[in-house]
Write a protein that binds this DNA or RNA. Structure first.
Lengths: 329, 329
DNA sequence: CATGATTGTGTACACGATTACACAAACAGA
DNA sequence: TCTGTTTGTGTAATCGTGTACACAATCATG
C-alpha cells in the first residue's frame, strides 16, 4: 500500500527508453516523436508516475513556490485577498507557502526558513515586517517582493494605494452631517500603511481647518476596537471615529452602542477601512474606505507574472480607493 | 545585488574544509570537532550561507512540507483553525502549502500538483474533497492524511468530533423555551461532516418525539444563510433554525429580523455551529455548538508528530463539542 | 609500548530530474 | 548518388545536499 513513488529511470525501463526521453515526454516544447510521447504518457498514467518537483526544482533553479507573508489568516481584512491570490497562483501552477507572522523574532526566522526553499517570489501583505529585512533575507535568491511599503531596490515591486480622494469624500459627508470632533483608531503603532491611511484622513480634515483630536492604538481585532473605543469615548468628547480597519470599526460601533448608549450615525459616526464583505452584512452596514480586492490582486499577479517571465516594466502600480456607504456615517 | 546564493562546496573552499564537513556543521548530531563547527558557522554567517532545503529534501526523502487542503481562506469558520495550525507547524519547522478548493476539477489537479512536491503530511480540512481521492493521489508517498471523514486505511488518521451531548443540551433549552418546529440549514448538500452534524440535532429531537420539519442548503456563507432563511421562513412556519455554521446563522438571524421582523430569541431561535470568535461579538452573541479550537489543533498536531517520528499509536482522536450560550436561542 | 576504541575529516556516491552534446537515421535537394 | 539538414534518442554531466565508507590521528587501557 505504502508503495514508493516510481522514478523516471524506472519508468524508462518500463517504456523501453532512456530517462532523458521520459523527461522530454513531459516538457511540451522538446524534440520527441509523438508516438514515443504518447506511449510514455500512457505507461506513466498506468503506473501513476509524475515527475518529482523537488528534483526538477534543484536542476531548474526554479521552485515554482511563492512565499506569502501575512499577519494572520483569520483576520478577515486580509483573508479575502489571500484567498483570491492563492486561487490565481494555483491557476498558474505556482504553490503558495504561507508564512504567518506572530512576534518579531519568529518573523525573521520564518522568512529565513522559507528562503532556504528557494522560493521564486515573495509577496508581503504583512505590515509588521520591514521591507529591508525581507530584502536582506531574500536578496541572494531571485524573488521579487511585492508590498505596500516602497523601497528603492531593484528586487522590490510595489502596489501603491491612494485613498486620499475617497477619504475626502467621507470626511465631507460626516462634516456636512454636523460632526465636529474626530478620533483616529489605528491598527498598529508602527506600521507604514497605517500611517499612510491616517494621513489621508488627517489631510482631508486639515483642508477644512480641522484636525484629529484624539487617538488610540489597537491591533486590528474586534476586541481591541471595542476596548479602545470605550477608553477613547470616556476620555474625550469625539463624535466621529475613523478606524484602521473594518473589524475594529465593528468593535467600536458595538462599544459605543453597548457601553455608552450612542448609536450610529446620529450620536456618533464610525468609519472602517478595507471594504471586507462582512462590512456590508445587514447587521453591520458599515461606511468604509474600500479597496477593490479584485483589482488589487490583479495588480499583484501582474507584477509576479512580469517577474516570472523576466519582462521589464514599471515596478509599481497605483490603485485608488472608493468610499462605500453604509449607515454608520 | 542579485547575487547567487553560495553553495556548500563554495563555503567549503572558503573555510578550508570539504563540503561534507559543511553539512556536518549544520546537523546537530554528527561527528565533528567543535572548533571546526564554530569556524564554519561563523564563516557561513559572514557569507550568508544556509543549506538549500530543496537539495536536502531530494537527498533526505523528506521535504518538511505539509499540504493543507481547505475550502476557503476567507471563511472564518476555518480561518481560526488554519491560523493556529500554521503557527504550530512553523514552530516545528514545517512549512504549510495551502491548497484552496474552488470547484471539483481544480481540487484533484491541485492535490496532484502538491503531491509532486513530496509533501510529508497532508491535512484535509475541506469537506468537499473525498478521502478516497486524497488517498489515491498521495498513497505513493508517505503522508498521513488527517481529517474528519473516517476511512479504513493505514495512511489515514482521523479527528472524530462528537457533538451529540451538546446538541441535546441546546435542543433541551430551546424546547423548554416553547419552540416547536425546527428547521435545519445545511452548509452543503453532500458533505460527510454536514450529515454528521445534522444527525446530532435530528437525534436530539427524535428523543423528544420531534423531528426536523424543514430543510435548506446553503454554502457556508453569510449570503446563503440570509437567502435560504428567507425562503425557508416564507414556505414553512418554523420557530427554530439550526444552521450548519456560525456565519450562516448570522445571515439567518439578519434575514429573520430584517425581512420578516422576527427577533431572537422570542420569535425565533437560531443556533450556529463552530464557535468562531465572531459569534461571541456583542452584535452577534450567538448560541452555538462549539468546538475547542486549541484542543482540535492540538489533536491534529499530535497525529502529525506521531507520524513524523514514525511512532505507532491510535490513528484516531475523538473530541467532544460544547454548547456556547448567547442570546439567539 | 602495544592494542583497540574513539574522534574527526575527506572521498565518492546517491537523491531524481533536466539538458548540452553526440550521433544515427531519415529526409531533402542537386 | 552525394551532401547537408532535420529529427529522435541515448550518454553523461549537473543541480546542492547528506551520508556510508575509509582512513589517519588521538586517546584509553593494560
Amino acid at each position: 500500500m505504502n508503495k514508493r513513488r516510481i522514478t523516471s529511470k524506472e519508468l524508462a525501463k518500463l517504456a523501453g527508453v532512456s530517462s532523458a526521453t521520459i523527461s522530454r515526454a513531459f516538457s511540451p516544447d522538446s524534440r520527441i516523436g509523438s508516438a514515443t510521447r504518447d506511449r510514455i504518457l500512457s505507461v506513466a498514467r498506468e503506473h501513476g508516475y509524475q515527475p518529482n518537483a523537488i528534483a526538477r526544482s534543484l536542476n531548474n533553479q526554479r521552485s515554482r513556490l511563492v512565499a506569502l507573508v501575512v499577519n494572520a489568516i483569520g483576520n478577515p481584512c486580509e483573508a479575502e485577498e489571500q484567498q483570491l491570490l492563492v486561487h490565481r497562483l494555483q491557476a498558474r501552477q505556482l504553490l503558495p507557502i504561507i508564512l504567518c507572522c506572530a512576534d518579531h523574532d519568529d518573523r525573521l526566522q520564518l522568512m529565513r526558513l522559507a528562503s532556504t526553499y528557494q522560493v521564486d517570489h515573495v509577496v508581503v501583505f504583512s505590515d509588521m515586517v520591514s521591507m529591508q529585512d525581507a530584502v536582506d533575507i531574500f536578496h541572494t535568491t531571485k524573488p521579487i517582493i511585492v508590498s505596500f511599503e516602497p523601497l528603492d531596490n531593484e528586487n522590490v515591486s510595489n502596489i501603491r494605494i491612494d485613498g486620499a480622494a475617497a477619504a475626502d469624500e467621507i470626511i465631507e459627508k460626516i462634516v456636512n452631517d454636523g460632526k465636529k470632533r474626530f478620533a483616529y483608531l489605528s491598527g498598529t503603532k508602527s506600521s507604514w500603511i497605517d500611517k499612510l491611511r491616517r494621513k489621508w484622513f488627517a489631510d482631508a480634515l486639515a483642508r477644512r481647518g480641522m484636525a484629529i483630536e484624539a487617538e488610540a492604538f489597537g491591533d486590528y481585532t474586534y476586541d481591541s476596537g471595542f476596548k479602545e473605543a470605550v477608553l477613547l469615548l470616556h476620555r474625550s468628547k469625539v463624535d466621529a471615529i475613523i478606524c484602521g480597519n473594518d473589524v475594529m470599526a465593528i468593535g467600536a460601533r458595538d462599544a459605543a452602542r453597548r457601553m455608552l448608549g450612542k448609536n450610529t450615525p446620529d450620536d456618533i459616526a464610525i468609519v472602517g477601512q478595507d471594504g471586507i464583505a462582512m462590512a456590508a452584512w445587514d447587521c453591520n452596514d458599515l461606511t468604509t474606505l474600500s479597496l477593490d480586492h479584485v483589482a488589487f490582486i490583479d495588480a499583484v499577479v501582474e507584477l509576479i507574472e512580469r517577474h516570472d517571465a523576466d519582462l521589464p516594466g514599471p515596478h509599481s502600480i497605483t490603485l485608488t480607493c472608493n468610499a462605500r456607504w453604509g449607515s454608520t456615517a
